[in-house]
Design a protein around this nucleic acid. Structure first.
Length: 586
RNA sequence: GGGCUCGUGGCUUAGCCAGGAUAUAGCGCUGGCCUUCUAAGCCAGACGCCCCGGGUUCGAAUCCCGGCGGGCCCGCCA
């Protein structure tokens, strides 16, 4: 139990007792953080008004007169129908600082729950590089995973590789039948047609798009290519091990490039699950057999099977959920069903980070799982798409910004920044810090906005290193580190009577809220709270920094250094939770 | 056409789910602060019919209904 929890409990107990004195035992009330400055917790008395048949202000007055400051409660006041409470400042400061010193980086983390959480994210088709329209997925997913771990859960992250279907088959044909010269010519021509030079990259995901484009073109123009691809597709559907093997191999090569990009933004996944496995092991087929026996199942004249989901809250003409083709082969959704059943054998909670275009599909999936008798449902977390000022992103039209390009641009921008201010630093070190800062800016910029809001990608915003940005938080961390370096030897001093400045109290108060924020971000799935919190802590630190001297603070020096260390500790963990590096200088 | 979703100062954004006290923060703008711990910073200031119209309520940015505007979805694709 933290000091803040104890305080809340004391307030609750005091109000309950006071209500009992008034003969209103058991009246419901809320204890909430106040929007007023200088008030720590508030109890609104409006809801009690009806039950007690008295004006809110009168109730608050009455309650206030019955509650005397004691324990952690340092003040009680009745204002505008609210009962306002203040926490004992020394107890709060001492408690929080003491706890951070004692727990270090584990401060704010929740005790282990033993709950197994499976978090699927990214899962982009292995047919091309990741562009910023899709980049929200890995960043949201990875940040959520880090939050959930801090909430005490056992988290496994997972990428579902779509190595089945026409797209990957075409790509496979392209990789195996298009010559290097042909691919190079295509790449050049494409660059010319979209009026820009795409960066030459020795990464499989970028290199292979040319093969993919050539394959598509030739398939349209040459009947024998068309036939060959159709044949491959048919053999794939029939479970031909050789075809499935080569297609999977292509997807693997492509995935290497995607993994490199992900690793560049500090995203690594625990597990990769291949869609083709659900065909190979027969589990997709089992799903089909089980669904056929359900009361909701039906068959079209052509022989395709479907579920009628009109009783599952799905409206209009979307009620038919097809789960086999007329030739009996399975569909993406059927395999996704098998995949989800598999996930539930491995986890207690299943979370899917999905683009908003998957909303209907996800709902249908849940209905089908219900029909199959699955008790738990996957919890989808949807994000809206990122577009460009000129419109929707499209690789084909060249209206696209690749994540790799964004990272490069951000890193080189960070390099220019650091070079302009730190001429003393060796080249190698500048490069290293530029990387940390550049990548941090990219990640922060993506998680800071609520997932369900669509956003338009603008370079000047993505490369903003001021104010509400990743580098702002990193800068504070570097500042704190610099002070601690210059301080040399000091010993921990958690004496609250030496930390009484209003900026110190505000900083500690911000630090005290970390565990609540992790809960909201992780368990509540509201990860955008985390960057906002980081900004709040950083801002409180900068204000403290500007107003309060530390290194020559006389008898308060050690206490202030301890506070600086606390802020550094919390900020370092916030940065890590955001998947960002915490540079010690910049 | 139907369903889902978003709409908050010039721009971006928090608060909305669990309705309450002066609506959060950033960019940009105006002005001030580097011979003191990193100015990627700090301080001060201007800028708001919380999309519109009804309803519920003592009280609505928040809940309900109806509009308007943007996005997404409505394949025997993945």
């Amino acid at each position: 139990m933290s000091v803040m929890d104890d305080f809340t409990a004391e307030v609750r107990a005091a109000v309950s007792t006071a209500l009992a004195d008034m003969g209103a035992d058991g009246t419901e009330f809320a204890v909430e953080p106040s929007s007023m400055e200088n008030v720590d917790l508030a109890v609104p008395c409006f809801t009690m008004s009806k039950v007690l048949r008295k004006a809110p202000q009168a109730i608050a007055d009455d309650l206030a007169s019955r509650i005397a400051p004691s324990g952690l409660i340092s003040a009680v006041a009745s204002v505008n129908g609210y009962l306002n409470f203040n926490i004992d400042q020394a107890a709060m400061v001492g408690g929080v600082v003491g706890e951070i010193v004692a727990r270090g980086t584990g401060y704010g983390h929740h005790p282990s729950t033993g709950l197994r959480v499976n978090l699927e994210h990214t899962s982009t088709n292995p047919t091309g590089p990741i562009h910023v329209g899709r980049a929200r997925n890995p960043v949201i997913g990875d940040t959520l995973a880090r939050c959930l771990k801090r909430c005490g859960h056992e988290v496994t992250t997972e990428y579902y590789v779509n190595d089945v279907g026409k797209q990957v088959v075409i790509l496979t044909w392209g990789v195996n039948n298009v010559s290097d010269e042909e691919a190079a010519a295509e790449a050049e021509e494409h660059a010319k047609s979209i009026g820009q030079n795409e960066k030459e990259r020795d990464k499989t995901d970028h290199r292979l798009v040319a093969n993919y484009r050539v394959a598509n073109k030739r398939m349209e123009a040459e009947p024998e290519v068309q036939a060959c691809i159709s044949d491959m597709l048919r053999r794939f559907e029939d479970g031909d091990a050789e075809v499935i093997g080569t297609v999977r191999h292509t997807a693997e090569i492509m995935l290497d490039g995607l993994r490199e990009t992900l690793s560049n933004i500090n995203v690594t996944l625990d597990r990769y699950t291949w869609e083709s496995d659900f065909i190979a092991d027969g589990s997709a087929r089992d799903v089909v057999e089980r669904l056929k026996t359900s009361d909701y199942a039906g068959q079209t004249d052509d022989g395709a099977w479907y579920l009628d989901l009109k009783d599952f809250g799905i409206q209009g003409k979307n009620t038919k959920f097809t789960f086999t083709r007329s030739d009996g082969t399975t569909l993406y959704t059927t395999r996704d069903l098998a995949y989800h059943l598999d996930k539930f054998t491995r986890a207690d909670r299943v979370i899917d980070v999905l683009g908003e275009d998957q909303k209907l599909g996800s709902k249908q999936l849940c209905s089908a799982l219900e029909i199959l008798g699955n008790e738990k449902m996957p919890e989808p977390l949807f994000y809206s798409f990122v577009s460009l000022p000129e419109g929707k992103m499209s690789t084909r039209k060249g209206v696209v910004v690749y994540l790799d390009d964004l990272i490069d641009e951000s890193v080189s921008r960070a390099y220019e920044e650091i070079r302009s201010r730190r001429s003393d630093m060796p080249e190698e070190r500048m490069r290293e810090i530029a990387w940390t800062v550049g990548v941090g800016a990219v990640r922060y910029n993506i998680v800071r906005v609520q997932p369900e809001k669509q956003f338009v990608f603008k370079w000047e915003e993505a490369l903003n290193f001021d104010g509400n940005s990743g580098p702002y938080l990193q800068y504070v961390h570097a500042r704190a580190c610099s002070m601690l370096r210059k301080a040399g030897e000091y010993s921990h001093d958690t004496d609250a009577s030496k930390l009484t400045d209003e900026y110190e109290v505000r900083l500690v108060s911000a630090l005290s809220r970390y565990s609540d924020v992790l809960d909201a971000a992780g368990n509540g799935g509201r990860i955008h709270m985390l960057p906002a919190y980081g900004h709040e802590v950083a801002s409180a630190f900068n204000q403290f920094y500007a107003a309060v001297p530390v290194l020559d603070a006389g008898p308060r020096r050690d206490a202030r250094l301890t506070l600086v260390e606390c802020a550094k500790t919390v900020l370092a963990d916030v940065l890590d939770c955001l998947g960002m590096g915490a540079p010690e200088e910049m």
